[in-house]
Amino acid sequence: MISYEYPLNERIRTLLRLEDLYRKIAHFLRGQAPQDHHTALITLFEVLEVASRADLKVDLVQELERQRQILMGFRNNPEISEQALSGALYEIEQASASLLAMAGKIGQYLRENDWLMGIRSRASIPGGVCQFDLPSYHFWLNRDADHRRRDLEGWLAPMTPIREGLDIVLRLLRASGRGEQQIARCGTYQLTMGGRSAQMLRLQVANSEAVVPEISANKYAINIRFVMPETLARPRLAERDVAFELTFCSL
């Protein structure tokens, strides 16, 4: 199955983008080649750009606190594992404390590093980080892989609370819905919301279907078109019935 997620508000859109960027950093951080660590650093700059929203930290803290209050209501419920509940509450409380401990603007320590900001500025130019443009960066890329990795981990560490907070929020969001089997007749599916609220849609489509969903949604209706992947340059509707699973996710 292939999963597709469609955020229905800007806050969830930002969290999904950050999640994708953090995963990308983690992948390339494990590499050994200079190109791996170059990609990890450029992605860190992207995290800095996306996370610079002034209210991101506040949004995460407020959402974690809301979820903590909800979970507290399950105390002494015989159908809920007290151990699992305590573990979830502890995780939320630790993440909230780490976020609150972050001082100043997110990533300000990176912006104050002239060497890193020089690389960031040159990286926005096609081919701008060649060795003749940034010889000091070329020197860094040719250092021992473990040395580069330690530097990257040090630059990333102060923003770890953001990743931990969004991981919890998105995990709870994804677990909030129950998938329902649907059929897109002749490749098209429409649904009136009818007062139903959601923050994110999740679609699961079998690999064998070989179709790609194009989703548009607002508070009134959802429209999904399944197009043929081999015609993405000029999207063509898959003019056949397509089975998929649809989940409404909301915290």
Rank of each mutant, 00 (worst) to 15 (best):
L141S: 03
A54L: 06
E209F: 00
L116T: 03
Q181K: 11
Y220A: 12
E164A: 10
D151Y: 04
I42L: 12
N77G: 06
E79R: 11
G31N: 06
T160V: 09
L21N: 00
H27Q: 12
Q35I: 14
E46Q: 13
R143D: 11
L166K: 11
R122F: 07
E180M: 06
A103G: 07
V61W: 02
A233M: 06
M117P: 08
K24N: 14
A233P: 00
V50I: 14
E209V: 00
I12L: 05
T231Q: 06
K105A: 07
R66C: 02
Y189A: 07
L152Q: 05
R150C: 06
E91S: 15
P126V: 11
S81T: 13
R23Y: 01
R17N: 15
A184Y: 01
E79S: 13
P135M: 11
L8A: 11
I70N: 12
R236N: 00
S136V: 09
R202K: 13
L60T: 02
E180N: 08
G104H: 04
S216Q: 13
G165A: 09
I162W: 04
V227D: 01
Q131I: 12
G31C: 05
L44W: 02
Y137L: 08
G177Y: 00
A145S: 09
R174C: 01
R68C: 10
M200P: 02
L18W: 04
L134C: 07
I162F: 08
S86L: 10
G118I: 00
T247H: 02
A101G: 14
G177I: 00
Q69G: 04
L21M: 00
D20F: 05
G31D: 05
I12H: 03
R185Q: 13
C186F: 11
N113I: 09
L48W: 06
